[in-house]
Simulated scan of single mutants.
Amino acid sequence: MALFKRRSRVNLGKFVAPEPVEPAPVERVVEEGILISHTAVRMQVRNHLIVSAIRDDSSYDPDELAEFARAEFESLAAQNVLLAREQLTGRNISIYRGLANAQRELAEDDAAIAKIVEQSRQEAWQEISGAVATTLAARAVDSRDPDYAAERESRIADLLTVDFVKLQLDSVPEY
């Protein structure tokens, strides 16, 4: 009885190299890169908005978010300039320079920046409202529950000792 039995070989056939493919035109690669960077900046703005609202208790400020989006595009453009300097082929240099130029143009385009800020605000609100709804659903109390009456006193005590105290502390002015 052999412990290690050799498996039979599977015939995978003979390797046939694929036909060579023409690389996409530089303009198309740049356009697709801009779409990707647009999405990346929108996600960065959304995350910045959420973090500043939750962690820093900041109010919504479209001008501050617009500056943040501009800085993100400028940062991406700077990265592409550095990548263009490191490349050996003219095609890659053209791609990175094209991306950098287009990202700088987007950073200066007020309408594009305003659109990114608004989309980010909507996405942030959807994410936050979904989290709030999930939390509320998890904390919901069903009055048909047999233990509802017995646990009512405990829920009221928690409300008075935890929630109202926190609310009162949060409403104390800082000055």
Results as ranks from 00 to 15, higher is better:
Glu72Met: 09
Leu76Gly: 03
Ala84Tyr: 02
Leu49Met: 06
Arg55Cys: 10
Ala107Ile: 01
Gln103Trp: 00
Ala114Leu: 06
Phe73Asn: 02
Ile54Ser: 02
Ser94Thr: 11
Arg91Gln: 08
Asp109Arg: 05
Phe73Tyr: 08
Arg121His: 15
Leu82Asp: 06
Ala137Ile: 00
Asn80Gly: 04
Glu74Ser: 04
Leu65Lys: 05
Ile116Trp: 01
Glu86Ser: 13
Arg70Pro: 00
Ala66Val: 05
Ile113Phe: 11
Ser75Trp: 09
Arg46Met: 05
Tyr60Arg: 11
Ile93Gln: 02
Ala66Ser: 11
Leu106Cys: 07
Leu76Cys: 06
Ala112Glu: 06
Arg70Thr: 06
Ala133Leu: 14
Ala66Cys: 03
Tyr96Trp: 04
Arg97Met: 12
Arg121Tyr: 15
Asn101Tyr: 02
Ala84Val: 04
Arg55Gly: 14
Leu99Gly: 09
Arg46Leu: 03
Asn47Arg: 15
Ser94Arg: 04
Glu127Ala: 12
Glu67Trp: 09
Thr134Phe: 13
Arg139Leu: 11
Val51Arg: 01
Arg139Ile: 11
Leu83Thr: 06
Glu67Thr: 14
Arg121Ala: 10
Arg104Ala: 01
Asp109Met: 01
Ala131Gln: 13
Glu127Gly: 05
Val45Gly: 07
Gln87Cys: 10
Arg97Phe: 08
His48Lys: 14
Val51Asp: 02
Ser120Asn: 08
Ala111Cys: 08
Arg55Ala: 14
Ala78Arg: 10
Gln103Val: 13
Glu105Val: 13
Ile93Gly: 00
Ala124Asp: 12
Gln103Asn: 12
Thr134Asn: 13
Ala102Thr: 15
Ser94Pro: 15
Ala84Met: 04
Gln103Gly: 07
Thr89Asp: 13
Gln119Asp: 12
Ala84Ile: 04
Val132Gln: 03
Ser58Ile: 00
Asn101Asp: 12
Ala84Gln: 05
Arg70His: 05
Leu49Lys: 03
Glu86His: 05
Ala100Asn: 00
Ile113Tyr: 14
Ile93Lys: 04
Asp109Gly: 07
Ile50Val: 09
Asp110Glu: 07
Ala138Lys: 10
Glu72Arg: 08
Glu64Arg: 10
Asp61Val: 05
Gln119Asn: 09
Gln79Asp: 06
Thr134Tyr: 13
Gly130Ile: 00
Gln79Cys: 11
Arg91Leu: 06
Gly130Asp: 01
Arg139His: 09
Ser59Asn: 11
Glu118Cys: 03
Glu127Asn: 06
Gln87Lys: 07
Ser129Trp: 13
Glu105Phe: 00
Val117Asn: 10
Leu99Glu: 08
Leu49His: 05
Asp56His: 09
Gly90Pro: 02
Pro62Ser: 12
Ala114Asn: 08
Gly98Glu: 10
Arg55Pro: 09
Ala100Gln: 03
Ile93Met: 01
Ser75Cys: 04
Glu72Phe: 15
